[in-house]
Amino acid sequence: MLRVLIADDQALVRDGFGMILTAQPDITVVGEAADGGEAVRLARELTPDMVLMDIRMPNVDGIAATARICAETSARVLVLTTFDFDEYVYDALRAGASGFLLKDMRREELVNAVRVVASGEALLAPTVTRRLIADVVSRDRSARPGPVGPSRLAGLTARETETLRQVARGLSNAEIAGALFVSEHTVKTHVSNVLAKLGVRDRVQAVVLAYESGLVAPGDAGVTGEVERSTQS
C-alpha cells in the first residue's frame, strides 16, 4: 500500500486529491498539511512513501519543504502546481523532487504519477521538459563558467557513462539496450549503478547532473527526445 501525504494550502484541493487517491485499492492518504512546515513535520512523523507538494504555501513554501523532506526522510516528493514558470521547475528538482506536474492533469494522470514516482522512477510534465533543459544549463553556466562538478562522474565506468548520456538524451531502457547492443536487464543494472555512484535519488536527478557536468548539452542528437519518456522507462 502506497502511503501518501498531501500538502496544499487550499482545503478543497487537499480534499479533491484525497478523494481521487483513496479510491485506489493500492493507495492510502496518511495525512494532510496546509503549509510547508506542517508537511515537514508530518513527513517525519507519518513516514509516507510519497508527498504531493504544492509550491506556493504560507510560512514555509513547497520548495523549502521539499528540500527538508528529501534531506531528512526517505519520502519522494511529487510537486503539483498551477504554475509552470521555469524557476519553479528548476528549484523543485534541485531541492530533490522526483516529479513536477501541473494541477490541470486528469485524475488518471495523477494516480499514475503517484505510482510511477513511488516506484522509484521520476516524472515531468511534457509542457516543462524542454524548458528544464535550457534552464539547467543557462542558470549554472551563467553563474559558474565551465562544466559543473565533472569529478562526480569520475567513478563511472565507460559503459555507465555512456548509459547516462543516453538516458539524458531521452532514450528508454529498450532503446539504450539496442544502441549499446546489450540486454534491457543490463541497462537497468547500469542505471542503478549510475544512481548509486552519483548519489542521486532517481533518473531525473541524474539527467540534471548530466547537463550540469557538461556530459550532454542542448543540441546533441536526440537531446530533445523528452526527458519524461526516459524517466518512466
Rank of each mutant, 00 (worst) to 15 (best):
M1F: 00
R3H: 06
V4W: 12
L5N: 10
D8W: 09
D9S: 08
Q10C: 07
Q10P: 01
L12F: 09
V13G: 08
R14G: 10
G16H: 02
G18N: 10
I20P: 12
I20Y: 06
L21W: 07
L21V: 02
L21R: 07
T22H: 02
Q24G: 00
D26V: 07
D26T: 11
D26W: 04
I27Y: 02
V30C: 06
A33P: 03
D35F: 11
G36H: 03
A39I: 06
A43N: 00
E45I: 05
L46A: 13
T47D: 13
P48L: 02
M50Y: 10
V51M: 00
L52R: 00
D54Y: 05
I55Q: 06
P58F: 11
D61F: 05
G62I: 03
I63N: 11
I69C: 09
I69N: 04
E72N: 11
E72V: 09
T73W: 01
S74P: 06
R76F: 01
L78H: 01
V79M: 09
T81F: 12
T81H: 08
F85G: 02
Y88I: 10
Y88A: 00
V89M: 04
D91I: 01
A92K: 05
L93V: 06
R94Q: 15
R94D: 14
R94P: 01
A95S: 13
A97C: 01
A97G: 05
S98G: 15
G99F: 10
F100Q: 07
R107K: 14
R107S: 14
E109C: 02
N112Q: 15
V114L: 01
R115N: 08
R115P: 06
V116S: 11
V116Q: 10
A118P: 00
A122C: 09
A122V: 08
L123W: 14
L124Q: 08
A125D: 15
P126E: 04
T127E: 13
V128F: 01
R130T: 14
L132R: 03
L132M: 13
A134F: 11
S138M: 12
R139H: 13
R139L: 10
S142L: 12
R144W: 08
G146C: 11
G149S: 10
S151P: 01
S151L: 09
R152F: 12
A154S: 14
G155W: 02
G155T: 03
L156G: 08
A158P: 07
A158M: 00
T161C: 06
T161D: 04
T163Q: 06
T163N: 07
V167I: 14
L171Y: 15
S172G: 05
I176T: 04
G178Y: 08
G178C: 13
T186E: 12
H190W: 05
V191E: 14
V191H: 07
V191W: 11
S192A: 15
L195G: 09
R201W: 02
A210D: 12
Y211A: 05
Y211H: 14
L215W: 10
L215F: 05
G219L: 09
G219R: 06
E226I: 00
V227R: 08
V227S: 12
E228Q: 12
R229G: 03
R229L: 13
S230Y: 03
Q232L: 02
S233T: 09
